[in-house]
Design a protein around this nucleic acid. Sequence first.
RNA 1: GCCCCCGUCGUCUAGCCUGGCCAAGGACACCGCCCUUUCACGGCGGCGACACGAGUUCAAAUCUCGUCGGGGGUACCA
Length: 500
Amino acid sequence: MGKNPKGAEMNGTPNTATAGVTDTVRVRMAPSPTGFLHIGGARTALFNWLFAKHHNGTFILRIDDTDTARSTDESMHEIYDALKWLGINWDEQYVQSERRNIYDRYVSQLLESGNAYRCYCTPEELEEIRAQARADKLTRSYDGRHRHLTSEDVERFVAEGRKPVVRIKMPDTPILVEDIVLGSRSIDPDTLEDEVIVRSNGMPNYNLTSIIDDAEMQITHVIRGTEHLNNTPKQIAIANALGLGVPQFAHIPLVLDSSGRKMSKRHHGDLVAVNRYREQGYLPEAVLNFVARLGWSYDDKQEIFSVDELIEKFDLARVGKSGSVFDIKKLEWLNSHYINQLDVSARTDAVIPFWQAEGLINSTGQRDWLENIVEAVGERLTTLQDIIPQTRYFFTDEFEYEPKAVKKWWGGSEEKKEKTREILTNLLQILEETPSFDVETVETAIWKYTDENDIKRVAAMQALRIALTGTSFGPSLFDIVALLGRDEVLKRIPKAIANL
RNA sequence: GCCCCCGUCGUCUAGCCUGGCCAAGGACACCGCCCUUUCACGGCGGCGACACGAGUUCAAAUCUCGUCGGGGGUACCA
């Protein structure tokens, strides 16, 4: 694979040869709709999409729903939603269950050419074969025993009510698998067994439909997870038997959990659900940037990539071979970066749904006030969801005084508590008398009090902070006082004193 | 069991193809200091890796072989 010859195009060279793969790339993302889109799937989608965009190609979404028992409409829509949220848009879309006749046609061809055959083995029989093969340390289990059935055999099986599957006859010559990421290798045919390509209920199987559709849809590059590596020679064998060409393959390393195992819906649940990250207040830019760097890098310094930069810089040649551990800390870092990147207005827009979901606001009529709150919170959000603990007290005075904060700043002993009551009482009086309630006036008044009475600033400030917010952390206290307003502040201090 | 893939700081990685510039660079995390009304931000500093063993070579993280370790697959799932 050569470099993208963009330069040649810019020169306006009027030939087609120099364009190379640039304008003919066709890739696909082929999820099976058996659950939410998971993080690994999102990365596969992203790599395909980036590759397509980079080469001015076509990105196709193909729903591989041949497993009718597990596929659901709901899941299909969840996948659409997740992809749209990420901004990964597709140019063409196909659903495999609507393409039965195409697969049936190819199966007939395989049967007629003698490259496939019906197998009447029962599940029990297959189980036995497997067990025996394992005991004998064989490299494959199914032994092709129904390759050459007599018509009497068939009649007998049919009479017994057995429903056959269709199996592909694997070749007896090595299969060359070329992979852009992993390199080339030759697969010993003795390790391949006659795969089932059509189930006994007549439904075709993944290895068959996948490679047929790749050919039918003129896919040029198959970019998928390495869990499919062992399927590749099988699919190539099927394509060969059908006389179809095969795309180029690029198997990307797995996304692993912290103990090094493949992330899966089954074992990791919500942790891998893309939609879950959206609900928790992650930005799509952050998720995209994060998964892009799982298994791919541009150079030895750049970590932050806008989508446009990703498109410009993505290259399969820089995809690594080993699996990558999903580290949520890094995602969080990226997320806070992208949140901070938003201006106050955009950040307010982003955060409003979270306030609403929490029941803290019901209209946006107080827009200016909300923006001021967001401004005061500043760079304290790791996720949008963090806006709740950071700002709850602005919307209600029904909050708990955090025990740890109380103990540390209000005092563990009665003596210290008494001192705190005194400070709060004095502050109350100062704030009652202060001519205006803007940040500067309040600040001046409070500093004057602490400094003149030889009270530690931090002690007074934290005592007041807890009285006003119930917590020991958050935005500048003067901002909080100003945003809460005189009435609210003068109401909360006595209440705090009473609770001391 | 069998088949296949992989192996640089705790994590993501640069470097490996085209041996020397690598007493291995960056980022996240962690720790410390500074800033500071708190918590974050930010600034500065610290901790920290070539899986192991042979071989080739003047020289190996880089090439070769072996060992060990990890992972994926092994379905009438995809």
